[in-house]
Nucleic acid binder design. Structure first.
Lengths: 198, 198
DNA sequence: TGGGAAGTTGACCAGTTGGTTAATTTGAAA
DNA sequence: TTTCAAATTAACCAACTGGTCAACTTCCCA
């Protein structure tokens, strides 16, 4: 019934790219449509509003990213390595983005969160949810590491939050200074926070 | 010669408030003028552009904040206490803002940096400069603490960056979750990072 | 092969954006 | 008391904002 189209996906991809490279405020519906090669009428055929597209884009990005995370945080991998590999993965992703955009883009969830969380509660709730899910990867890895005795014993949730806040701060600084090198600090920083033994 | 006016200061104050409570993108020249009780013509009498006002606002805010920091980081105070007091001061400031706006607003420099650093290089440079200055407070306190033997010995600059990234991550999470309680975690987190003895 | 649901299009909208201008009012200092 | 630089005002601008709509095209499926 009816014809098929890739326009919806193209809009989502364009939204992710533009927000990541710039900001929510700097990304207009016209820009999105232009980048996606879609007319505005079609935009509003697929999405109720700009916010709704952002929601869909965030969801899509997170669903994709989770696939990688599930591999990185596989229980087969030594727990501390999981955390370090996660950030190595970030670094590599940022490198690819740098080659494409000429800029370090950082974490889109956080940049977006900083921008919109006092202004758009739908977006804020979605971003919160994703970050809450994300931190659980750290948390369970930390618990495993503690059980295995490879790091200092501390409240795992608290440690996860510290590592998490630290990593997000680093990503933001990498974006602000447009400097991939900042990301290399994570490894030693995380070891200090986690009290990695040996 | 000519008459005097407080309009310039009112514009700066309005800009700071609006950016902090919302974002750069959500803050229009009309909003600023309305809040400041200034007509748009006057706006452009005092400032060349919106960016230029933002620059002035950031400068002004930082100049004010530095006065507090100079007291907090006085060499008279035990070095680890300086860092903890700095964050206690943040917390208190955030509490006051919360009472006023009903929201945790976090660090305006970082929220703004996340939003504009890929888009407006003048703003980005200014924000970079401020953060670079800020981190020196941490750095010298850490050096003093190490000299005094109250924390573990490590590259002071590296430690300062970790604490700094961590604190900024925390502030951002407090903003996103609208939760002052997040800020209380700093004290134990900072002690873990710094390896505070005793 | 043809009906009809789904996708596409471009013209349109009112409100807002950052920014300009020329005329006018003010008040500090000579 | 005059003077004139500095401050204020309101009207104006083109471009852009997010969003709407009715007409039109496509092409999946029965």
């Amino acid at each position: 019934m009816g014809r098929t189209s890739t326009a919806k996906d193209r809009l989502i991809d364009a939204m992710i790219e533009l927000i990541w490279a710039g900001s929510y405020g700097s990304t207009s519906v016209d820009h999105i449509c232009e980048r996606a090669g879609v007319k505005k009428g079609s935009f509003y055929h697929f999405f109720e509003s700009k916010t709704e597209l952002a929601l869909a884009a965030i969801d899509h990005g997170w669903t994709e990213h989770r696939k990688e995370l599930d591999q990185i945080f596989s229980p087969v991998v030594p727990p501390v390595e999981r955390i370090l590999n996660c950030f190595r993965n970030f670094r590599q992703e940022q490198e690819e983005l740098f080659e494409k955009h000429g800029r370090v883009l950082g974490c889109p969830i956080h940049s977006l969160g900083a921008e919109v969380s006092t202004v758009d509660e739908k977006l804020r709730d979605k971003l919160q949810e994703i970050l809450s899910q994300f931190i659980r990867y750290y948390e369970s890895a930390i618990r495993d590491a503690q059980a295995q005795g490879s790091i200092v014993t501390h409240d795992a949730m608290a440690l996860a939050r510290i590592v998490f806040a630290y990593s997000e701060g680093l990503l933001l600084h990498a974006r602000m200074w447009n400097d991939l090198g900042r990301l290399d600090e994570f490894e030693s920083g995380a070891k200090i926070i986690l009290g990695v033994k040996g």
